[in-house]
Design a protein around this nucleic acid. Structure first.
Lengths: 247, 247
DNA sequence: TCAAAAGTGTTATAGGTACACCCATGT
DNA sequence: ACATGGGTGTACCTATAACACTTTTGA
């Protein structure tokens, strides 16, 4: 890609900005930042990287990168996620775009925030090629973060709670076969809210896309739990119906 | 603002993109596009401008503009809205950011979509300084749109429906004193769904922030309706409680 | 037989849906 | 008196919440 063509620069210009040299509009950049939530046994965490360089050297920050000139925005988010976790096929959800003038001390950079949720055990720590140090931090006790990343995390956390209420995001985290207790613990952790066991199970029973298997746990020192799985086809049907269940 | 400093360009660069000249990251621009919904008497419309120049000359498009180098993102959206409608103090809501590589035929431009809703009667048509022609189009019958603007409108429409379910956005559109029928018509129009009169009124009665006034309509050839108004203080209390009402 | 967790049942209340009916005003 | 929209009441049904109870396993 070469410099923006004269045609591009004149065509894209609007009448009332004639007083500002058009080149100034090309002194900005855009990035993606990923809020990667990690779930494991009633713990919700966020994957942060430690910055090696200024600005905010030594601070913890969200993994992110500039978007390649010939790379779709969503693809950039998937790439950051993949480089850091070695996981592809993870659903990333665009959350919000942050564009305050002074949010980056060295220039004008707007950033598009994405969120994803993974099972912590599925990830080899330090798998990234470019993050100097990475660590899972409990969502409840975050360190000081670089840039406006605290605000980005807060926003992504709110968003993931909304997603959890309407979509089976637990399918991205729980094992293929899971127990209802595991499912309840997931909801309780993410939504930070306790549910009554009986009522929870009644509600799950109304969800046709949570299918009981003819299997149960083995070698537990209590009554073994029945195992359930996510039924993608039933979920598709449910999506197309108009009776939506929420938490 | 001058060209990005060497320091900025080297600091912002990440290790794994060394193969791409850093200058290429500054050949892009970002814009805001506004989906301005207009409501008036059971009609929901979108304000479009006619493009005078290529690309997409003659097409209808969303009002939008490049973001000024020293302008916050949200401020840019407010500016576009204000220039076109002469209205300030309108709530704009960021919807989504569109960043496909090929979405702008003349270069790499990502755009942040914002939505707003206004009362059509509040606007002097053609009030804009830079839009060659502007027109309200019914949400149900949109013309061919420039760029990916169809997708943006779709996305904003979905978002405004969600907002309507949880927030009193009718307060941005209905007169200070309104009737319950007007309120019901607003919901029916925006959500594209009919409600039972009695049940609707029962639900509204549970909302403490819709306050009955001791006034009624005058000079109507039927039983005059009681007038209601939005109670900002009661709404604040409601927001801080945990029992949220939705449609 | 005990601990631990799975799993079920009962009851009360709140909220949603459908629908019928009455009311106040101008013409 | 009638057309027009405003406004209310009831009966039914479903969803939710609180809570007590029974069941199955390994140790």
């Amino acid at each position: 890609m070469t410099a923006p063509s004269k045609a591009f620069r004149s065509r894209i210009q609007q009448d009332d900005i004639y007083s500002i040299p058009i080149d100034d509009f090309f002194k900005s950049a855009f990035s993606v930042d990923c809020v990667i939530f990690g779930y494991h046994e009633k713990q919700l965490k966020v994957l942060l990287i430690e910055r090696g360089t200024e600005p905010y050297g030594g601070y913890w920050a969200l993994p992110g990168d500039l978007v390649y000139p010939s790379e779709d925005l969503d693809a950039a988010a998937s790439r950051v996620l993949r480089d850091l976790t070695s996981l592809s096929d993870i659903t990333t959800r665009q959350i919000h775009t942050f564009g305050k003038v002074d949010r980056h001390p060295l220039g004008r950079v707007i950033t598009v925030a994405y969120a994803a949720i993974v099972e912590i055990q599925d990830i080899r720590p330090q798998a990234s090629s470019w993050a100097s140090d990475t660590k899972w931090h409990s969502i409840k006790r975050l360190p000081k973060l670089a840039f406006d990343h605290k605000e980005i995390v807060r926003s992504a956390y709110d968003a993931i709670k909304e997603y959890a209420r309407y979509e089976p995001i637990w399918n991205e985290v729980l094992p293929k076969k899971f127990t209802l207790t595991q499912l309840q613990e997931f909801y309780e952790t993410v939504l930070n809210k306790a549910f009554d066991k009986g009522n929870f199970r009644k509600k799950i029973n109304t969800m046709k896309f949570v299918k009981a298997l003819n299997e149960s746990q083995k070698n537990v020192n209590h009554r073994p739990s029945a195992l359930y799985s996510f039924d993608a086809k039933a979920f598709k049907d449910y999506r197309e119906s108009d009776t939506l269940i929420e938490f």
